[in-house]
Nucleic acid binder design. Structure first.
Lengths: 338, 338
DNA sequence: TTGTAGGCGTTATCAG
DNA sequence: CTGATAACGCCTACAA
């Protein structure tokens, strides 16, 4: 077991030519029954496996997609990765995983390596900062699908996400219906669609109920770090603190909750809480959290579907925007305002 | 922007031969200053990137490692993936991600794919069932590193894991010291090292204190599914139910906790609980859980280090067993027996 | 139905 | 220093 067998070894062993071997392996072209059997046996005995690199060198499109996620530490992205890998496998696609850690510099590096890897397509959650680089990818005939978030100024890529505006409006409306008037919002950065769209939904809900908007209650924070805790503290320190809050920044849910626990803010008595996030731990927390659940499997399904289809050029060039509805789950962290 | 530039395009543009371009790019061999400049400029203008597949076709090993994990839904593996990806990047390695979902069949498929040598090495958490297939990989001169768990009958692969025996003994001892005598144990399958070693640690702690072993209190369960809940229920239904439990099966922690919540078992008053797991959510749960924390970054670091070194054949052939200590975190889910 | 030959993009070798 | 040229392993016309 020193060096791997090549297609030529198989051909020799089976007493045929390489083309015959290739044909039976890829089922392309006719082969007589006896020779086919001989080839199969030789393949078996030698434990032959075609080398991926050599195969790619030819005409075929790479059977690999890049998955560029923000951060696997966030259960949302982790589950997304899990589903994407599963969907990819069912289409016989490999997944190369990279993470940006929400760092534009790392994202840029990753985009470059994706280029040489010559993956057939990319599914990613952009940080929001490397417009030109993403653009370069897209211009290079490389299918790109943004999932969960998108960024402005990039209109030629497909986007799969939940209905952010709707979801935020629902969450906010839920609180308004329970008598809350001062409702905090902690969204992601406004230059990502998840940030801006959820703010829009929040504002729409307020407007529909004729409630005034207080700028101090809308505090976008980066996905990284623990800033969610800070802005939460700041809001609670206002003269008229909020009686409810919507944490629309998935990555900051934990930071906010930890802050509330430490400050001994009682949920939902003193503060009602709705979070954008729903991982299996959410329901084990006291109290179980009212949440907007993202249909992760749908996001994964559509994303993989799209890259796959584009890789096979089975789609009209116009970019797609797939939006899947999110589910609102009322649990015990929201209550009627006292 | 139709087809990517090749090294020949660059050579033509720069008015040199391909060899010169290759030498400039890989810093292998001498090149005159002016030509070097010309090449660099051509590369820049054409946006040229060497194609990984073509490069692999030559002698070099692929600069990609396979990461075959059980399940990204489990925060432990997700965080592990995150760290592995980070460590890999710092060594200029790519990571292709696959998951087994603890299903031997899927694992086998994945191993077959890996056999095409599109990766230079593999880091994995084996299900415990495909010994021959892993063996085939290893015999194919492909570096394999098991992380977290290992399987019997595979002695030629490197293993990186925590000190399972020690950790389980510590956890069990902690409970014994608090007066508990009937202590349940929910480990993983006994044909994985995490399962069998933790049982051994548990037994050792009991023996050291002269406490008898009750077989009915040791209930190994698969990583998949929700069986953890069932065996927990069964133990509680015993004539002499346990007053404490060690959940040593990371994947089943949630199931067990959910069961306890539903059955309104009060922790730690009625039952003390120690879990093998420590994700950021653990401390948000009520009560905060006493836990064995696995040093995930160390596991990742050593794993990547090992494959990397082996890929560059910078290591004696003898397999390594790296064991890192785990940390015992006492929080509030364990109490002195009443 | 089969085999031969050429090409895919790079790197390595080895004469100029 | 530089530039042909031969691999690398596989696929696929094209010719037999």
């Amino acid at each position: 077991m020193k060096k791997a067998a090549t297609i030529r070894d198989v051909a020799g062993r089976a007493g045929v030519s390489v083309s015959v071997v290739s044909r039976v392996l890829n089922d392309t072209g006719p082969v007589s029954a006896p020779k086919r059997a001989a080839v199969l046996e030789a393949v078996e005995q030698l434990g032959y496996r075609p080398k991926a690199a050599a195969r790619q060198l030819g005409q075929d499109r790479p059977d690999t997609i890049g998955l560029l996620l923000a951060d696997l530490t966030n259960p949302f992205f982790a589950r997304l990765a899990d589903r994407v890998v599963a969907e990819a496998r069912s289409r016989e696609l490999q997944v190369v995983l990279m993470t940006t850690q929400e760092d534009p510099h790392l994202e840029q590096q990753a985009l470059n390596t994706l280029l040489d890897r010559s993956v057939g397509g990319v599914i990613g959650t952009p940080t929001g900062h490397n417009v030109e680089h993403w653009d370069k990818l897209a211009n290079l005939e490389m299918p790109v699908v943004f999932v969960d978030r998108a960024i402005d100024g990039l209109d030629q890529v497909d986007v799969v996400s939940i209905e952010n505006v709707e979801s935020a409006a629902t969450a906010t409306g839920h609180l308004l219906d329970r008598g809350h008037r001062r409702i905090g919002l902690v969204p992601g950065p406004l230059d990502t669609t998840t940030g801006s769209e959820r703010v829009r939904g929040y504002e729409r809900a307020l407007a529909e109920r004729g409630v005034d908007l207080d700028e101090r209650l809308v505090r976008p924070v980066p996905f990284r770090g623990e800033t969610g805790a800070d802005v939460m503290a700041q809001m609670l320190a206002l003269d008229e603190p909020p009686t409810a809050v919507v944490v629309a920044n998935t990555a900051q849910v934990r930071a906010v909750l930890r802050m509330l626990t430490q400050a001994r803010v009682s949920v939902p008595d003193e503060l009602s809480v709705v979070v954008f996030d729903d991982n299996p731990w959410t329901e084990l927390i006291r109290p179980p959290l009212t949440a907007v659940r993202q249909p992760i499997d749908m996001l994964a399904l559509h994303s993989v579907d799209l890259v796959h289809a584009r890789m096979r050029q089975k789609l009209p060039p116009a970019p797609r925007r797939v939006r899947v509805p999110a589910e609102f789950l009322e649990r015990s962290s929201t209550a009627t305002r006292r």
